[in-house]
């Protein structure tokens, strides 16, 4: 089964290409060095590594929020120069406007594009329902739990109908139980939405559980250390968490990362 999955992913065309990407902060700190990566269309790729390996930096460069020091990023074959409609970002700290309702927050990406109010609210309602927040449209973020807030962030990113969703440690500010439920819902959502996800996390289990491909980064400077085609096991979430291949992959990644921590 593992072999099958990696075969299909090898054939999949890539939607995001990163070439010779480097980022240096203040001319001294080398956050990323000569990164070459391709992200297959319709799949979930995780950037995983010890803290300070530049994984969030890379994600923000792909988002167009940060300028690379050198190198290029191509999305759908076009070189990016800033944020674009084909990419949507989900923030670690949710980035919800406290003064706006769930509905307005979820529709905000469309509001910025100048879409008429009725139209954008209708679309936002659909995605609010998809992330399981029906009934909370008129609540304010402070009335929601952390997990629910991040669902609003996800609805906002889905509403703009981008091809690529960039998620920066989206569950790190959410408690463990909510996080598991959220991960399961994410898998279900990926089935419906057929989008490309690029996911940053520091949780090995989360990476293997959700991803088709895990990119391991080393620390200072951040370099690609290994690309692992994660076998996505079929079956219920609980079966996956007990799956032999799943557990072996988690163990393998841990052994690799451990080296960086001991350095």
């Amino acid at each position: 089964m593992a072999a099958e999955t990696s075969d299909t992913s090898a054939k999949a065309e890539s939607i995001v290409e990163v070439r010779h990407l480097s980022k240096t902060y203040d001319g001294r700190v080398r956050a990323l060095e000569d990164i070459n990566l391709s992200f297959p269309k319709g799949q979930l790729t995780t950037l995983l590594g010890p803290s300070g390996c530049g994984k969030t930096t890379m994600l923000k460069i792909i988002a167009g929020l940060l300028e690379p020091s050198s190198g290029e990023v191509f999305v759908n074959g076009k070189k990016i120069t800033g944020p674009g409609p084909e990419r949507a970002f989900v923030f670690q700290d949710f980035a919800l406007m406290p003064w706006a309702t769930v509905l307005r927050n979820a529709a905000f990406g469309l509001e910025l594009r100048g879409m008429a109010k009725n139209e954008r609210n209708e679309i936002a309602r659909k995605y609010i329902a998809e992330v399981g927040l029906t009934g909370f449209e008129n609540s304010y973020p402070r009335e929601l739990s952390g997990g629910m807030r991040q669902r609003v962030g996800l609805a906002r990113a889905l509403a703009v109908n981008a091809d690529v969703l960039l998620m920066d440690e989206p569950f790190s500010a959410v408690d463990e139980q909510t996080r598991r439920k959220f991960q399961e819902d994410m898998l279900a959502l990926m089935e419906i939405e057929k989008k490309t996800f690029i996911f940053v996390t520091h949780s090995i289990e989360e990476a293997v559980y959700l991803s088709d491909q895990v990119v391991l980064l080393s620390r200072l400077p951040g370099k690609v250390s290994e690309i692992i085609k994660a076998p996505k096991a079929a079956g219920s979430p609980d079966e996956i968490r007990r799956d032999k291949v799943y557990l072996d992959t988690v163990e393998h990644i841990w052994q690799t990362l451990r080296k960086y921590l001991e350095e």
């Binding site: 949507a88 980035a95 406007m97």
Partner: peptide
């Protein structure tokens, strides 16, 4: 809030 500003930029505000 810088995160909100980044959010606005990421959605091409």
């Amino acid at each position: 809030n810088t995160s909100l500003i980044e959010m606005s930029r990421s959605f091409q505000g």
